[in-house]
Computed example of a mutant assay.
Amino acid sequence: MSTPEQNSKLLYWAGVALGPAAWATNLQGVYVITHFACHNTASSSLVIGTILILVALAGSLLSARAVYRGAGSEWADARGGGPRTFMAWLGVGSGMLFALVIANQLIAASMVNSCLR
């Protein structure tokens, strides 16, 4: 397998991998920042959460781009390209779902006082 072909196959998995990774980073980051957020008034959890929402959405966009870029190659592929397309669409949905989960956690973290946690 050539390197460009391998890189293009990794784009199909971008949403599947980046969405859960961003959520896990957000979850652990909120727990780490809680102690420091109580003593400081900086809204660092809002900044980190927003960045990780963008990371999850970027994974979705990469997976969607892989679908649209490789749509014509399904006919040229002897196997039909079905599994890769399925994983790419699963990545699009997964990235959007995890971006929504991060946004919900971000809203909850902004409503609750940091010193009470």
Rank of each mutant, 00 (worst) to 15 (best):
G93T: 12
D77F: 13
A88E: 02
V32G: 01
S110V: 08
Q105G: 15
I51N: 12
A108E: 11
L90C: 05
L57S: 02
N40K: 03
V55C: 11
A103D: 03
A108T: 11
F98W: 08
M1N: 07
T34H: 07
F98Y: 10
L46H: 12
C38M: 03
G81K: 13
T3H: 06
G93S: 14
T25Y: 07
F86H: 08
G29D: 03
S45I: 12
G82W: 05
L11V: 00
L11M: 08
Q6G: 01
L90N: 01
W23D: 07
G81M: 13
W23H: 13
F98S: 04
A99E: 03
A56H: 12
Y68E: 09
L57A: 03
C38T: 03
I51F: 15
A22R: 04
Q105I: 06
G81N: 10
G70T: 07
V30D: 08
S63A: 01
V55M: 10
W89T: 11
L97Y: 12
V32M: 01
T41M: 00
H35M: 00
L27N: 09
R84E: 14
V16R: 03
S44F: 13
L10M: 05
W89M: 12
V92A: 11
V30S: 02
N104G: 04
I102P: 08
A58C: 10
A58V: 07
K9R: 09
G15L: 04
N113I: 07
L18C: 02
V92F: 15
S60T: 05
R65P: 01
I51L: 15
T85M: 15
A22D: 05
L61D: 02
V47G: 06
I51W: 14
R69T: 05
L10P: 00
A103S: 04
K9Q: 07
M111A: 05
L18R: 03
V47F: 14
S44I: 15
V30R: 09
L52V: 08
I53A: 06
R79I: 11
G72F: 07
S43I: 10
L90A: 13
V92T: 10
A56G: 09
L18S: 03
G59D: 01
S43F: 11
N104Q: 08
A56Y: 12
A78E: 13
G49A: 04
E5S: 13
G82S: 01
T85S: 08
F86Q: 09
A76T: 15
P4S: 10
H39M: 04
R69E: 03
A42V: 03
V30N: 08
V30E: 07
S73V: 11
E74C: 10
S73L: 10
S2P: 15
L57W: 12
M96V: 14
A99K: 08
L18D: 02
H39V: 02
N26G: 04
F86P: 01
F36Q: 07
R65L: 09
N40V: 02
N40G: 01
A14L: 05
S73K: 13
L100N: 12
G29N: 00
